[in-house]
Design a protein around this nucleic acid. Structure first.
Lengths: 207, 207
DNA sequence: TCGACCCCTAAGCGCTTGCTCAGCGTCAGA
DNA sequence: TCTGACGCTGAGCAAGCGCTTAGGGGTCGA
């Protein structure tokens, strides 16, 4: 709940000209609310307090804005997962940390995460291919934690790729349903989900 | 794998004039592929082998098509869940059956499910409210199975609403990532997920 | 004081969108 | 043979889309 979010978790802090940053945050809001295709460039510019033409001074196309959001968002969430995976502790502890932080990022930044996770299909071909590469890395990190637990004899997992898929799917889908007005805060969901994923790998009571 | 799908699981079998049915199936394909907003009425009509104007003889608007798909799809998936919940057996067996059939429907009919689960936001206000009601029923059914297991002492679940949310989220997200070309068939995913959800409720080895 | 530079806007272009409408062919019943 | 209902098409309308362009108005160093 009261955990202060690090600046690194605020995705757009270091985007260069002020106007460009205002445009990204406006686009994130709009894309998350209505979806990429239902959002107009006029709407984005309006939310950023500018005329429609101003958008094209900072970004070549509307798709480039989406790409920027998707790229920065994917890299940030991947880094959060990697840091958790590289931390000290048993596989169970690392898995719990990974799920907790990955999930609470998806909840805390659920507007960004929604765009990141659900608007991939609107990217151009090359941009899409690049993002798919990042997603594969996410999968690799999660699978390696689970595999470590299996190798150490701490987890009981008959199907490692399948369980990895399910665990990531669970985390990612938080972006879809999370409601900041709801009873559960980001940290609460992270805690709940860390427990559930530990149960899935059969390593709940392990050191 | 070889399990024959009942006609009831083929959502559009009983839509009245042939042309109207061709239009729904064309719309499902198009919406699932590109999303509602990125799909044009010309595209839908084209896939159904008709001129753009023909669409409006059978459906008042493009949104009405989406509503039809969403309504039929939600009712069907709800019924599948309800039937599993009403079956004989221990809570663990009923939960496994529910997850297995709910998940394999989402995989088997993943194009329909994708529209059902991810295009809600494009519905008009009244239609949206109606669909939200159906979704609440889905939640109620799943929660009651889990609660039964807790009451019977078979499950160990500290947070019933939270676990219900997670279990449904897991099932629903299958529609997003499922790939019919992949190694896992719908029945395989159903089996895997039934096991994982049983682990989540701590009732894996129970009668 | 001046010109160079950067941001920005007003206006609008070409195109696509959801949707309409007059009319055409087909076919059952009289 | 005529008639009316039905299912459909070709053509097209108004509105809105992504994006462009010409030019205005600040803020600099010189």
């Amino acid at each position: 709940m009261g955990t202060e979010t690090q600046p690194s978790e605020q995705p757009w802090a270091d985007i260069a000209p002020d106007a460009a940053r205002r445009l990204v945050t406006a686009a994130v809001e709009a894309f998350a609310e209505r979806g990429y295709h239902a959002t107009t460039t006029r709407d984005i510019a309006g939310r950023a307090g500018m005329s429609p033409a101003a958008l094209y001074i900072h970004y070549k196309t509307k798709e480039e804005l989406l790409y920027k959001i998707s790229s920065v968002g994917h890299r940030l969430s991947l880094r959060i997962l990697q840091e958790a995976a590289a931390s000290d502790g048993s596989p169970a502890e690392r898995l719990a940390t990974a799920v907790r932080s990955f999930v609470s990022w998806h909840a805390e930044r659920h507007t960004t995460a929604r765009v990141v996770q659900y608007e991939l299909g609107a990217l151009g071909e090359e941009h899409y291919a690049e993002i798919v590469g990042l997603r594969r890395e996410v999968d690799t990190v999660m699978r390696s934690i689970i595999q470590d637990g299996v190798d150490a004899g701490d987890f009981d997992v008959p199907d490692v790729p399948g369980t990895t898929l399910a665990a990531l799917s669970l985390c990612i889908d938080v972006a879809r349903w999370f409601n900041p007005e709801g009873r559960r805060g980001p940290e609460d969901v992270g805690e709940l989900y860390a427990d559930l994923v530990l149960r899935m790998v059969g390593g709940a009571g392990k050191p």
